[in-house]
């Protein structure tokens, strides 16, 4: 299977030029295959979110290379990165960050609107399709604030997929949900992984999610402590 992402010798040090620099990540070397379904676990402060931010190009490594689809994105300019991020990566966070004054479908369309001046019928159809996939087609015109926590997270999942990203990065996607909604969100992510060939990297504290993924990466003190693939 081809690789979607390769991290080579990644270090992340905060406050490099200060008296007390903090090394959040140390010599991370990881390869993620296309269409794979991965989880990253570890205690608070182990470096999980720092790593996900680097993978998602929201932050840059102090040292090392991030190779995405065989291209070294560490060398991209800020503008190139923004375009790349918008088109290639989907994000799901513990707190969905939906815009409350917009409807479900408008929130789903938002990442597309950011990079394209005009919304065409094809992309509107795609948004409808995604809301149907996440089981919220009939709530498409509801304002985000009028949806339950589980529903809002499902809208966020649909939003992460609107630009057909190669990879979705999820930071504690079920951290704010009850166990039934957790199971529903897991099933949804797995279905999307299977049907759309989208790769997933999921940070989670929830063993029910982690044990169902195909690969568990455990970080400890900024290093890869365990890396097991089914």
């Amino acid at each position: 299977m081809d690789n979607i992402l390769e991290l080579k010798n990644i270090d992340k040090i905060y406050g490099v030029n200060t008296k007390n620099p903090y090394q959040a990540l140390s010599n991370i070397n990881l390869i993620f295959k296309k269409n794979s379904f991965n989880s990253i676990i570890g205690q608070s402060g182990s470096g999980k979110s720092t790593l996900l931010n680097i993978i998602g190009t929201l932050d840059s490594p102090t040292k090392g290379e991030v190779i995405f689809n065989n291209q070294d994105i560490s060398k991209y300019t800020k503008d190139e990165l923004a375009i790349f991020r918008n088109k290639s990566i989907g994000f799901i966070f513990q707190f969905h960050y939906l815009l409350p004054e917009f409807s479900a479908i408008e929130n789903v369309l938002m990442p597309y609107k950011i990079s394209n001046s005009k919304v065409n019928q094809d992309i509107i159809n795609r948004a409808h399709e995604l809301l149907e996939i996440v089981g919220l087609e009939k709530y498409k015109n509801q304002l985000a604030n009028n949806l339950s926590g589980g529903q809002q997270q499902r809208v966020a999942i649909a939003r992460s997929l609107i630009n057909s990203p190669n990879i979705v990065l999820a930071d504690e996607p079920t951290g704010n949900l009850d166990s039934d909604s957790t199971e529903a969100v897991y099933n949804l992510l797995r279905e999307i992984n299977k049907n759309n060939n989208t790769s997933f990297i999921i940070i989670t504290h929830d063993r029910k999610i982690a044990e169902k993924t195909d690969r568990i990466i455990e970080l400890k003190d900024g290093e890869v402590y365990t890396d097991i693939e089914k």
């Binding site: 676990i41 063993r207 982690a210 044990e211 568990i216 455990e218 365990t226 097991i228 089914k230």
Partner: peptide, 10 residues
Amino acid sequence: TNYYNLIQTK
């Protein structure tokens, strides 16, 4: 049996 349990066992 469950591969997740390797983490805790380790």
